[in-house]
Design a protein around this nucleic acid. Structure first.
Lengths: 356, 356
DNA sequence: GTGAAAGCGCTAACAA
DNA sequence: TTGTTAGCGCTTTCAC
């Protein structure tokens, strides 16, 4: 391979004795090229290392792309608020490359709304779709539709491999449960009673929470010498009639050493309980840097948070898709985020950091 | 799909009844514009929200930028190897925007070489400089030179505020020491003897290591009830004659509960010792995801690593500078990275992650 | 001082 | 099936 600097389409055309139009056509497999011309151009291309000027390509094609982002209504949950923030950031970042992001918000607790909203998204004729597939059946149908019309879609937050998306962005939930367990273990070397709290309004659609629990349990199963007893509680949410009673029940158990809460919202709910009943010696491990969670982390009620970084998941999603559309860069199939451990000591370094 | 109707220079020119050349001149304060024309253009500019098309600007100006990166020779230390990797990645990423990165490697243990190499860097007439200011005096002189010739420079890894760079990229070292202490504390709730190990060939230039130690000590000072005894050891490096003796001395102390190692290379050196003398109950907290460190982390010899993410520091540096040069984006003065906690459980999620 | 015009490298429409 | 050419939005040169 010759290492010439800045080879342009024009140069290739000259070397191959054809026109730039022809070179462009073979570069993009647009057809309408004779066998002879094709071979001439390919011969040159094989000899040199042609790297197209992406900037010029962008300007030249002058295309605009629209990405439809389907997420739960941010007003319903601070976790999704952070996703929305990430979406907005990414939009600003990619806007000068001609991509726009249109938000489609559905009701976190209503399958029906997902159906309606996903249809609206589809009808807006987007060039690509980014979504968190909260509802299994409904998502499946939606993606079927997308695939049939050739609209690429990327999943984040929750992975459902059989929906084979262009890419998935999220975390290894099983491993995340193990991280939670290890953190729990650290302060409770000799084991004890640990509670796994699923605090989530829609328990039917909470497969991903079970994955975390499985990881948590596996960690201790692999360390039988620790003698950990693990109790699971499926709690709808604070508005459920029996919620308070069940919470108090477990939290007041004198043998309880720690709680692992599988949801971000649940984390500060549990923390509030713990503070109320003045139990300071319970290890609390939960998820995500919601403002409320940070408050309890600073106050020492929460010991550790595992950061799922919803905002970065969202902005990475837009980034992948934009790169795919604008620069034809194929994304990795799996984009597993680091399982970030947040404690009182490194909290500020995460909050203050401009990096995502 | 065509681009959104964005306002172009041409439009402004039309509205102001002047030519594009004139608009361009006022936009960039290039002078050679009559008071009258200036006012006409400004009037329009105040009424509309003109956002220049950065892509087109790039193509039009067709400029190339050269960034000189000064780092220690990667062959001397795996930490700096990772920096070099980050530099290479960033170079690839920004290369289509016309920026090239030229590496200038100096001897990690030789001030003189820094002087020589920095001069070479300067003489290459770069548009900007990225460097890790390992040597105080020499860096100071170098930056003086840069400032006087208007070459912007960004610091990473080690901050020396009085060198007032365009930006600094790195971590809060004091806080990083606190994170280390908290991690140490977790597995040793009742305190004990902790050793702070500075394993670094050039101890004179190790101000930043002392900052970590200070944070480590402060953590326990703030928690006198923990009864932690802290011993500091300044060890040149394995090739020093007394090194082994001193290490064995402290590690074999029966009261020793844990070691906090302030350098990345020192971390696996300490781990190797610990493994050799078969002390499994010592908590070891160190720095960075070097391959050797990951090995000992997996093996349970190292308990925690604090990730300084040298590769991302380097690539962020190039990114800041490129944005500054190409898009005229002014960087934040301080770019403090998150203090990432790496354990056996989340290690893979960091290694496997495509994100940086 | 000012405006016209020629690029930057690539795309795409349109003759031929 | 080809080659030519007119943009994309901005910069920069160069007559006037």
């Amino acid at each position: 391979m010759l290492h010439q600097k800045n080879i342009r389409i024009k140069d290739i055309a000259q070397l191959a004795n054809v026109s730039v139009g022809t070179v462009d056509r073979v570069l993009h497999n647009r057809g309408r090229v004779s066998q002879e011309a094709l071979e001439k151009v390919m011969a040159i291309l094989n000899q040199i290392d042609y790297k197209p000027n992406l900037i010029a390509r962008m300007l030249g094609s002058n295309k605009a792309y629209k990405i439809a982002a389907l997420i739960p209504n941010p007003a319903q949950d601070p976790y999704w608020q952070q996703s929305a923030t990430g979406l907005r950031q990414a939009q600003a970042e990619w806007n000068s490359y001609g991509v726009t992001v249109e938000l489609f918000l559905f009701d976190l607790y209503d399958k029906g709304s997902y159906k309606t909203v996903s249809e609206a998204a589809y009808n807006s004729r987007p060039d690509a779709i980014l979504t968190a597939p909260i509802f299994y059946q409904e998502s499946l149908a939606f993606f079927e539709l997308c695939r049939s019309s050739g609209i690429p879609y990327v999943l984040f937050n929750t992975n459902i491999p059989e929906m084979n998306p262009l890419s998935f962005i999220g975390q290894d939930l099983n491993q995340s449960g193990k991280v939670g367990a290890a953190l729990m273990h650290l302060g409770n070397q000799r084991g004890g009673l640990f509670a796994v709290l699923h605090i989530h309004e829609d328990l039917d659609n909470a497969v991903h929470l079970l994955e975390k629990e499985r990881g948590f349990r596996e960690y201790f199963l692999e360390r039988p010498e620790t003698e950990a007893e693990i109790k699971t509680l499926n709690l709808g949410g604070p508005e459920e009639p029996s919620f308070e009673e069940q919470m108090l029940n477990i939290l007041n158990d004198p043998r309880l050493k720690g709680c692992f809460v599988s949801t971000s919202k649940g984390t500060f709910i549990a923390a509030a309980f713990l503070e109320r009943i003045k139990k300071k010696d319970i290890t609390l491990v939960g998820y995500d840097m919601l403002e409320e969670n940070l408050h309890y982390l600073k106050g020492g009620v929460i010991d550790f948070l595992i950061n799922q970084n919803p905002s970065r998941q969202a902005s990475t999603g837009i980034g992948l898709l934009s790169n795919y559309l604008v620069f034809k860069k194929n994304p990795e199939l799996m984009n597993l985020f680091p399982l970030e451990i947040i404690s009182q000591q490194n909290l500020d370094s995460y909050v203050g950091s401009q990096i995502h």
